[in-house]
């Protein structure tokens, strides 16, 4: 007969860990089962021997050694470790890094440049007789930047580009009477290496 289901209760019974009702049930089973009865006897015997084996006291010097070690440890004044300055420096560095991160996250977004009206350089409507050579005018206009391989421009560079000066130089020497005048507009960009020249012929309505 398999008594596996009784083993746990027999083990508790042998140590006196069962209540009256459970102990009574185990006793009834033990009276009918030789295997479980032998198991209970073995367990009781071994528990008794185990208690006896551990009853031998430790030598007094073992206790004294522990006390001495504890008192010696407590007698040493708490000292600051050499690592403390480094710990403080590391903590400050971490705090500074954290502040930078917070600043980057919380800073206001870059103010976008206002949309400027698109201006077109055009010659004033006037008769040819009224025209006088210009000394040069500066007109603000909206100029598109060329795409280049450069890194992304800064906000200031972008504004400068958009508000590039358009220098209208004086017209060239008057050509032959019948030829329409050729005008040139020089567009300066933020990149000093890029200058745009715009040449066009003027064809007024009065012609």
């Amino acid at each position: 007969m398999s008594c596996a289901i009784w083993e746990e209760r027999v083990a508790l019974f042998s140590g006196g860990d069962l209540g009256t009702a459970e102990a009574g049930a185990v006793e009834r089973h033990l009276s009918q089962c030789a295997a479980c009865s032998a198991l209970a006897a073995d367990l009781r015997s071994e528990l008794g021997e185990l208690r006896q084996a551990h009853r031998e006291p430790l030598a007094p010097e073992h206790y004294a050694a522990v006390r001495a070690r504890v008192l010696a440890e407590l007698a040493v004044p708490p000292r600051r470790s050499v690592a403390w300055p480094w710990a403080w420096a590391a903590a400050l560095a971490v705090a500074a890094a954290g502040a930078c991160v917070v600043w980057v996250i919380m800073k206001p977004a870059a103010i976008p440049a206002p949309e400027l009206p698109r201006l077109v350089a055009a010659a004033p409507k006037q008769s040819r007789a009224q025209r006088a050579p210009r000394q040069g005018a500066v007109i603000s206009t909206h100029v598109r930047r060329r795409r280049t391989e450069r890194a992304a421009p800064s906000v200031n560079e972008r504004r400068r580009s958009e508000l590039a000066e358009v220098v209208v130089p004086p017209p060239p020497a008057p050509p032959a009477a019948e030829d329409p005048p050729v005008r040139m507009v020089q567009l300066a960009t933020a990149d000093p290496n890029v200058v745009i020249y715009w040449l066009f012929e003027e064809k007024g309505e009065e012609r």
């Binding site: 083993e7 746990e8 083990a11 073995d42």
Partner: peptide, 17 residues
């Protein structure tokens, strides 16, 4: 705890045997 104690006693007995 009861389960741990009973298992411990049985394991100990098996080892000794």
């Amino acid at each position: 705890v009861r389960s741990q104690i009973s298992k411990a006693r049985l394991k100990m007995r098996d080892f000794v045997e």
